[in-house]
Simulated scan of single mutants.
Amino acid sequence: MPTRHLSITTTGGACQATLFAPAGASSGPAIILYMDAFGPRPAMDLMAERLAGQGYAVLVPDLFYRFGAYGPFDAKTAFSNAETAQLLRRMITETTQAMTAADTSHFLDALAEEGFSGKAGTVGYCMGGGRALNAAAAHPDRIVAAASLHGGNLASDAPDSPAANAAKIKARVYVGVAGVDGSFPPEQSARLAQAFREAEVDHLVENYVGMKHGWCVPDHSVYDDAGAERHWKRLATLFDETLRE
């Protein structure tokens, strides 16, 4: 799979990113993959490669670039170590939704500079889930599809939650929810679906019974192969029906 390593200039500094493009492709639809809390790493690369294999250019930016060199973190052990867990929580908190939404403008510009200036989609995992949805709210003229998998706090009381931004979203939305997830309890799921309905967002919020937070990502301790394959089918449908139209 052809890859290009990019340094994207943003208002926050230089964001390192990897672009995965189908062989021979110099234009076409693109997807931004928003990482989980553990950073860009081989597991994220494998997921990006799978999407690129379906005919999309896929950009994987390091959302934590403001912190300089770090990790990546071990998805199986990072939160079980007190020092690492504290650092991770700080990085997540201090990399705000507003920062990622602003960065997304530069991500889209970088894709355009590489020739991929058409329709775009987003997909995010864990902390990236809300960012993928908020990116669609911040850039409705370009992002036509957005997916969140085991994203947390999607309908919290925070003013920057995706539920609060639902009226700005023009994209088709898919939300895959872990069966039991303390970061996205049933009341938030219901609130998010209601916000989407009221905003007339084309959406599907789907519960993955028995899956745990992180089930989609292959280096997570709770990875589930059947559940992951189900999410890949949903993404294929979402992106094929929006980015290829």
Results as ranks from 00 to 15, higher is better:
232 W>G: 02
176 G>L: 08
241 E>N: 10
173 V>N: 01
191 R>C: 00
155 A>E: 03
232 W>E: 07
160 D>F: 07
201 V>A: 06
149 L>P: 00
228 A>T: 13
129 G>T: 02
200 E>V: 13
210 G>L: 12
155 A>D: 03
178 A>I: 11
132 A>S: 12
130 G>K: 06
156 S>N: 01
166 A>R: 04
156 S>W: 02
202 D>E: 15
205 V>N: 09
125 Y>T: 02
123 V>T: 09
159 P>H: 10
215 W>G: 00
175 V>M: 09
209 V>G: 05
187 E>V: 07
169 I>P: 02
185 P>A: 09
227 G>A: 13
187 E>P: 00
129 G>N: 05
228 A>V: 10
174 Y>C: 06
127 M>H: 05
208 Y>I: 10
239 F>M: 11
199 A>L: 14
194 Q>W: 00
218 P>L: 09
151 G>A: 10
173 V>S: 01
195 A>I: 13
223 Y>P: 06
182 G>V: 07
178 A>K: 10
130 G>R: 05
148 S>Y: 02
124 G>W: 03
121 G>S: 10
159 P>I: 12
133 L>H: 03
176 G>N: 08
132 A>D: 01
167 A>S: 13
166 A>Q: 05
164 A>G: 04
139 H>W: 13
181 D>A: 08
144 V>R: 13
232 W>R: 11
224 D>Q: 11
215 W>T: 03
133 L>T: 09
127 M>P: 03
217 V>D: 00
120 A>G: 02
236 A>L: 13
176 G>D: 07
150 H>L: 10
137 A>S: 14
231 H>Q: 15
242 T>A: 07
138 A>Q: 08
170 K>T: 11
199 A>N: 12
191 R>I: 00
184 F>W: 03
183 S>F: 14
197 R>M: 10
194 Q>M: 05
152 G>F: 11
244 R>L: 15
197 R>K: 15
208 Y>M: 12
168 K>P: 01
136 A>F: 06
185 P>C: 02
238 L>I: 08
218 P>C: 10
151 G>C: 07
120 A>N: 06
242 T>S: 12
171 A>Q: 04
142 R>P: 00
147 A>I: 02
187 E>K: 08
147 A>H: 02
198 E>D: 15
140 P>L: 06
205 V>R: 10
167 A>R: 12
178 A>R: 09
185 P>Q: 04
123 V>E: 01
189 S>Y: 00
177 V>N: 04
135 A>T: 10
234 R>Y: 04
140 P>T: 05
188 Q>V: 09
156 S>Y: 02
190 A>I: 02
191 R>M: 00
220 H>Q: 15
226 A>W: 08
217 V>Y: 00
159 P>F: 10
134 N>I: 04
223 Y>G: 09
241 E>M: 06
133 L>R: 08
145 A>N: 03
239 F>K: 12
167 A>E: 11
126 C>N: 06
224 D>H: 11
196 F>A: 11
162 P>V: 08
235 L>N: 05
